[in-house]
Each structure stands twice: as structure tokens, then as C-alpha cells.
Simulated scan of single mutants.
Amino acid sequence: MSDKIPFLLQTDRLILRKITLQDAPFILNLVNTPGWLQFVGDRNVHNEMGAKSFIQTWALDRYKTFGYGPYMIQLKSTDQLIGICGLFKRDYLEYPDLGFAVLPEYNGKGLAHEASKTVIKYAFEVLKIPKLYAITAQKNANSSKLLTRLGFNEIPPFNGSTDKTFELTH
């Protein structure tokens, strides 16, 4: 996929696209929401410059290295940015894991589910990845429920982690 051609996935309500440095204000907000801080962790992103640096390593470098990464979720009807959903390669996992986060006001509306289903389909059918993982904090009941609804099964955690680990095989 050429960097000049924008990556785009669509659902009935959503557009998923590659994250760009211009998304720094949104990312700054997202990574400092209470849910992100509680369940993902503090990424030490406290200003727009920090957000751009975070985007470079967290998203742009992943696109170049792996051909995938996190994608921006925006509402089709308004172009409003609402969260991220994508694939993350971890050193200790053979296959990427699915990650997602939406702003608190968009929780419970089925949007993370809709975005995740689309990313899973893309991973299996286009990228030909045979298996995906998902990792979430023990206390993140909403993410665990969503992963189960998406067809993921809980498995023993890797590397002695205390997080819940899930897998989905194509």
C-alpha cells in the first residue's frame, strides 16, 4: 500500500483511516481520558508536541514496519473523530493484537464493535493474518465483553502477565 494512497475502511456509520500528525490534538485528548489512563496507561503525552512524537512511534513507524497499526475512527455523518482501532505487533506475540479505544461519550453505542469487526475482517481477508490476539486489563469488563462478542476466546496470558489475553483464529 503506497503512503500516497490513503488507507480507508468503511462501515455503515464509520470511516477508519491511517492516523496522521495532524491528528495530534485528538490523540492528546484520547490518551488522557480516564479510561485510557486506567486501562491502557499513562503514555506521558501532555502537549501537542508530545502527541506528535507519540503518533510517530505508535502509529507511523508501525505502518512502515508492519504494514498496519492503529487507525483513526471517525463518524461518516459528521467526520467527528471518536477513537482508534487497529492492530498492534508485540515482540512476544507471534501475531498482532487488536486494540481499540473511543472517547467516553461514544462508549456503549456499538461503535468500537463496528470498527473492530471491520479491522478483523481486513486482517483476515486482506492481510491474511491467520490469528489475532487481544489483551485487556483484568478490570476492563467492557472490553472483555466486547472481545467475547467479537468471537475472541480467553486464553492463558503470555509472559506471566496479569492482563486478560484473548485469541481469535480465522
Rank of each mutant, 00 (worst) to 15 (best):
F66T: 02
G69P: 04
D91F: 05
K64A: 12
N47P: 11
Y71S: 09
K64P: 00
G83F: 05
P70L: 12
S53P: 01
I84M: 12
L87N: 04
I55N: 03
F54Q: 02
N47Q: 13
A59P: 00
Q56L: 12
G86K: 01
A51M: 12
I55Q: 03
G83Q: 05
L93A: 04
K89V: 03
I84P: 00
A51S: 13
E48L: 15
Q74P: 01
G69M: 03
M49V: 15
T65I: 06
R43D: 09
L93N: 03
Y92S: 10
R43A: 14
D42A: 10
G83I: 02
W58A: 12
C85E: 01
K76C: 07
A59C: 14
G83L: 05
W58L: 01
K76M: 11
F88T: 08
D79G: 04
H46C: 12
M49I: 15
L93W: 07
T78Y: 04
K89M: 12
E48S: 15
N44D: 10
L87C: 06
N47E: 09
F66N: 14
C85S: 10
G50V: 02
G69H: 02
M72G: 09
Q80E: 15
M49G: 06
G41L: 13
A51H: 03
L60G: 00
H46D: 12
